[in-house]
Simulated scan of single mutants.
Amino acid sequence: MASIIGVSSSPFPTQTSHLLPSRSNSISSLVQLKRDSVRRLLLLRVNCSSRQVGDAETESESKVVLPDTPADTGISAYNWCAALGGIGFLETSYLTFLKLTNSAAFCPVGDGASCGDILNSSYSAVFGVPLPLIGMVAYGVVAILGIQLGQKSRPLGTGEANGRLVLLGTTTSMAAASAYFLYILSTKFTGEFCPYCLASVLLSFSLFISSMKGLGFQEVQKDVGIQLLIVLLVVSTLNNSYSDSQPTNTGSALAEMEYFTAEITSESTPFAISLAKHLHSIGAKMYGAFWCSHCQEQKQMFGREAAKLLDYVECFPYGLKRGISMINACQEAKLEGFPTWVINGEVLSGEKKLSELAALSGFDMKEELTEAK
């Protein structure tokens, strides 16, 4: 029994000694496998996190770049254009009303004489069109374009790019005209101050800068040639208009003269009074100037009482100064000299005898003389 147990007991230690190494190897292999999988997971996480960081940096860079684009900066610039254009529209509307109604301007600085002299000068119209009316249209267009471009809508039915170019061209022409008028004010109206003119100059240059900011510096550089062409066209147009509209009767002795009223010393005859009443009844008008000697002689022919009955139009009620032109009524009559009579639609230049005026107006002298007796 003892031998059997001793023989039979010998294999167990042998088997145990064979099994232990295999289990330890499997356990170590499992541990190594786990370590490898953990390393792979860590590598995946690192790669994923690096990609996320790279994407975040790309997004942050794109977010930083976006505010520098013309589209974002253009919103505030075009809102400025809309606001400044609206202010300019209100100002020029007021000046247009004054120009069309021959009303005196309210001048916040000074006695108002400078404002009236400049607004009634020959430089206040371009080829017969009142300058404030042109400015009112220009400011209105700028205000509308600024509102529509600021709201990202199609300005005036065109594309956004075309709308920006139209706005830049309009403000360029306004700035060029303002620079020209600033030169006129400094050379032709020395010592006079017009706050409306200076405010328009400031608005025009501000609109020009705002439109350039909205379009972008690179786009403005591409259109420099067009802008220079617009400036040359505006200056050439203004030069041609003012060279044709300058008064021809202003000699050196009449360059500066304040308005005055000459006294009529002669007595009116019954014939002269009757003729003056007749001329008034048919709408005949006499156009003249306070400094015109022939106009004064014409009034002396009628006499003191009859001259008051005539429809006389003074063409220079603000005096005669450098740059001052005739009032609109005289400009529309297309006068060639003083005095000028307009009788039954016929324009008659020069001083006329009473008998001539009676014949031209259909006045019956014999009948009137008979009634006078």
Rank of each mutant, 00 (worst) to 15 (best):
L44I: 01
P11A: 07
R39N: 13
A289V: 01
F363R: 07
F97A: 15
V231H: 00
I226E: 05
I144K: 03
A276H: 00
S24L: 07
A2M: 06
G337M: 01
S26Q: 09
F181D: 10
H278K: 09
E356T: 15
F89S: 15
E346S: 13
L279F: 00
G191Q: 13
T237F: 04
A289F: 11
M286W: 00
L254C: 03
E368V: 13
T248G: 12
Q148F: 01
P247L: 11
F260C: 06
P270S: 14
P339I: 05
G319N: 07
A306S: 07
L254W: 00
G362L: 07
Y180L: 13
A255I: 12
T269S: 15
N102R: 06
F217V: 14
W341S: 09
P70T: 14
F89H: 02
A143N: 03
P339C: 10
A329G: 03
S93G: 11
A179W: 00
S268H: 09
L203V: 04
H278D: 12
V347L: 12
F181G: 07
V166L: 15
M326D: 11
G110T: 09
E160F: 02
E305S: 09
G88L: 11
L19K: 02
S60R: 08
S62A: 12
N79D: 15
G128Y: 01
E371K: 15
S29R: 01
M365K: 06
P195Y: 02
S10I: 01
L185H: 04
A284T: 12
N79Q: 14
Q15C: 12
L95F: 00
S3T: 10
A82N: 06
W291L: 06
M1L: 11
S17A: 13
A2K: 08
M286L: 14
S114E: 03
